[in-house]
Design a protein around this nucleic acid. Structure first.
Lengths: 208, 208
DNA sequence: ACCTGAACACCGTTCAAGT
DNA sequence: ACCTGAACACCGTTCAAGT
């Protein structure tokens, strides 16, 4: 069953993918649906409501892993799904840090992470905090990667030092070699996930 | 020396604090400076450049810790400074995940984190990755807290389950007790920092 | 060198009017 | 019930003109 709201959000996502968030306009959405901008208002309360819906639409895209898999594999699968949708829809990612996502789909993902942490043996009292932390890492990594926040790390040390006198960036100087080697983002993401899994395991054992 | 650009960015930040990002308008900035919107263009190339500058202006606000302090204390101080500015300027935080910050002030903060990680004994090869991870946690926590992303975790389980049939949120049901206790955000932030410090120490010892 | 004022091509949103 | 079209109060940005 394809509701009119769904159609609108699909078009909004497509416009965001093609031309960034600025291209998501009531008028542009209407035009693509063959309708005026005001015809959208019965299904979308305001532009803000539209963007809320867009975040929900994004979460809808991330597929959940098989419940039978071990918790580690499930967690890694969710993380990779998040990074995948971030790469498909980079313009929408920053909105995740702008408004809370409380759609059914958001809760579905949240519940899957809770379940994985419980299966890992994390004490129930700690689960909500740990979920917030690992979600922040995964969402933050995915958003930073596509937004260019991490690109500061891939600038050549030479360019960076040009901005400030050498003496003011001593650690950059000490790290020149490390900063010169190009970053393997796929590898870094997996390494981060390894560390998160190890962290979760440690929490579980501490709790026993 | 107070340049005209600085004045403009100060006004932009004030407007964002008062009325959100939507209130940051070329015309509004001009008005507050007693000038037309077009008078800003010699100092600000475009609205986008203005927002870049606003991110830089935000980073400018975070004070660096004394270099003589132990690395742990320095890292915690930076993290608390970030959270503090997030609370002072919540509207601007999401911009950090929208564009890279390569101003001198951003590099100053980055260098301080690099220095702390080096002093902790993290192998130089690992420092850039670890910096990206802990910065993501701290920035992500601060942004999520002020943006309301974390508010999903503080909704009553009852309200959440109303959105989906109980059987579809099994982990929520199992966590009902934990989800019902209100969250101490100050405490959670400190606990996260404890975990980060422990993680860094482990990396340092693994490297020896 | 620095600023103005009119103008252009847009926005989101309202409201009365149509079918 | 659903959509239109004109209108309102805004945007960012251009450009010629002023001093």
């Amino acid at each position: 069953m394809l509701t009119r709201r769904q159609e609108i959000l699909d078009v909004a996502l497509a416009l965001a993918d093609e031309g960034g968030l600025d291209a998501v306009t009531m008028r542009a959405i209407g035009k693509r649906l063959g309708v005026t901008a005001m015809a959208l208002y019965p299904y979308v309360a305001s532009k803000d409501d539209l963007l809320d819906g867009l975040v929900g639409r994004l979460l809808q895209e991330i597929a959940l892993p098989e419940a039978a898999w071990p918790w580690e594999k499930r967690l890694r699968a969710i993380a990779h799904a998040v990074r995948g949708t971030a790469r498909m829809h980079p313009a929408v990612m920053p909105l995740l840090f702008t408004r809370p996502a409380i759609t059914p789909d958001a809760l579905r993902v949240l519940d899957a992470i809770y379940a994985a942490l419980l299966d890992a043996g994390v004490p129930p009292k700690e689960v909500p905090r740990v979920e917030r932390m690992i979600s922040t890492v995964v969402l933050g990594f995915a958003a930073s990667e596509v937004s260019g926040r991490f690109s500061i790390g891939s600038l050549m040390p030479r360019e960076r030092r040009a901005q400030l006198p050498d003496a003011e960036l001593p650690a950059h100087a000490a790290l020149a070699a490390a900063l010169d080697t190009p970053v393997d983002w796929d590898g870094e993401f997996d390494t981060d996930l390894d560390d998160l899994v190890a962290f979760i395991s440690a929490l579980a054992h501490r709790g026993c």
